[in-house]
């Protein structure tokens, strides 16, 4: 089985959380990695720490201005926001979301929406499926584990800091290794850097 899209669910009612979890579990390509009730402190940070592909939220957990700032913050992170809506949800509120799951719909209509989300994300994942590092990324990894800062790397390779950061992010995503010591072990094992170059 390939990559499973990670879903975070924000909904105060347990019954609805459990129901949605059950439906999502029928789709092999997606899984709910965390659920929140909506009143947690620093909710956004907690959501983002799960690195979700999809966030399903019940807009009722927020006041109107809160909702908009919440949506804006999450939209910046390049993930799919789905509204968990009902009969009483206003049209204006629904328009904030690319997709809506309506609590009044039948199981198969809900599954159709979920499948649509799943398909739209698959193309994105095929691109990032390629996990071998490019030559440029290897050069940057070499410098990172030798202890150079992003600024130093940018200066010496005539790149912008932003570009170096993008490379670093891609390297971590491709390898599935986040910490500097983890990257160092990888680079040493794959002879991207020599034992005498680090420390």
């Amino acid at each position: 089985m390939g990559y499973r899209q990670k879903i975070v669910l924000v909904e105060p009612a347990y019954l609805i959380r459990a129901g949605l979890r059950k439906i999502i579990s029928e789709l092999p390509g997606m899984s709910v990695v965390e659920t929140f009730e909506g009143n947690e402190i620093r909710l956004i940070d907690k959501i983002l720490s799960k690195t979700p592909d999809v966030v399903i939220i019940n807009p009722d957990v927020f006041k109107k201005n809160e909702l908009i700032s919440f949506i804006n913050k999450l939209n910046n992170e390049n993930l799919v926001l789905v509204g968990l809506t009902g009969r009483h949800t206003s049209f204006g509120c629904k328009s904030h979301f690319r997709y809506c799951l309506d609590s009044g719909e039948s199981k198969y209509d809900l599954l159709e929406v979920l499948k649509k989300i799943n398909r739209s994300l698959q193309t994105k994942n095929i691109e990032s499926e390629n996990t071998s590092l490019t030559q440029r990324e290897k050069i940057i990894l070499n410098r990172v584990v030798r202890g150079q800062t992003t600024q130093e790397i940018a200066d010496s390779l005539f790149l912008s800091v932003h570009t170096v950061n993008t490379h670093r992010k891609n390297i971590s995503n491709k390898l599935g290794i986040k910490t500097l010591s983890g990257l160092t072990v990888y680079a040493l094992m794959n002879k991207i850097v020599g034992m005498d170059e680090v420390e």
């Binding site: 720490s49 390898l175 599935g176 986040k178 010591s181 983890g182 072990v185």
Partner: peptide
């Protein structure tokens, strides 16, 4: 106490990396 929850994460990341290195990149 609210600051305290964030601190858990760094330690968790390292353990995850170690597992991934063994699973994906073991010679």
């Amino acid at each position: 106490i609210t600051d305290y929850e964030a601190e858990h994460e760094n330690v968790e990341e390292k353990l995850f990396d170690l597992k991934n290195i063994i699973i994906k990149y073991l010679p």
